[in-house]
């Protein structure tokens, strides 16, 4: 725990030590505004909910989460500091969790700064605050899923650009797993069960259910399991590099 806390503090501080954090937060807020008001027709719809805001989050995260997570391991490898990190008396699990949590909390800060949109909709009408809160929680869980994937990918390379591009690609597959773009590759030769399993990985399908106001325990468990799985894979990647 001690190690995870020290790591978490350093990593979170690292985001704010450079302009990266501020640039990121501004772009995040700007894009979520553009999506909500222009693509989502937030005002024209005349409905007091935040669906136009949340519905674009998978696409927003698809680009933004790899950008946050790409540095987690690749930067350490490039700078050689990974050698310091892995020779500290801290368990690997603590290191991975500390890094991941820093990225996740940073995302949570950016997400929390979208609160004016909640205030706006509350001022204009009577939204269902329970649904909005659930959507925020669901959005954060989904962001965690993207971050865990990209953290693992970051551990495989010392090149942040590679980590970013591969991260976007893998995140894209998870995002649209339930759509023909992925399923068509399997339809025709793979059994139905396989297709169902693949489409059950779809972030969009799961997240859409949450922002409809249906918090299904299975969706929550899905994202939590996904995070644990990818962080575990992250540990294996780091361990393999020590042995390989």
């Amino acid at each position: 725990m001690r190690g995870a806390t020290a790591l978490f503090q350093r990593e979170l501080g690292a985001y704010f030590a450079t302009p990266v954090a501020y640039v990121f937060i501004m772009i995040f807020l700007f894009l979520s505004g553009v999506f909500t008001f222009y693509l989502g027709s937030f005002l024209e719809r005349g409905q007091a909910d935040l669906r136009p805001f949340f519905v674009f989050h998978p696409w927003l995260y698809l680009v933004m989460m790899p950008a946050i997570a790409m540095r987690l391991w690749a930067e350490e490898r490039k700078a050689g500091t990974v050698e310091l990190l892995l020779t500290l008396p801290i368990g690997l699990a603590d290191i991975i969790v500390g890094k991941f949590l820093a990225a996740w909390v940073f995302t949570a800060i950016a997400l929390a700064l979208t609160f004016p949109i909640w205030l706006t909709v509350a001022y204009l009408g009577q939204p269902d605050h329970g649904v909005i809160l659930a959507s925020y929680i669901g959005s954060l869980l989904m962001a965690g899923g993207y971050l865990a994937i990209c953290s693992c990918i970051s551990a495989t390379t010392k090149n942040q650009i590679v980590a970013f591009i591969v991260g976007v690609l893998v995140c894209f597959l998870f995002t649209v797993a339930g759509f023909p773009i992925v399923l068509d590759a399997f339809a025709g030769w793979a059994p139905d069960l396989v297709l169902q399993v693949i489409s059950s990985f779809s972030f969009i399908t799961r997240f859409n259910a949450i922002i409809e106001g249906v918090i299904d325990a299975r969706d929550v468990i899905f994202f939590v399991t996904l995070i644990v799985f990818w962080l575990f894979a992250n540990a294996i990647v780091v361990d393999l590099k020590k042995a390989g």
Binding site: A14, A79, G80, T81, E83, L84
Partner: peptide, 10 residues
């Protein structure tokens, strides 16, 4: 370690 790596922003 060789080259004394450290976090440059800190």
């Amino acid at each position: 370690p060789e080259g004394a790596p450290a976090y440059p922003d800190m």
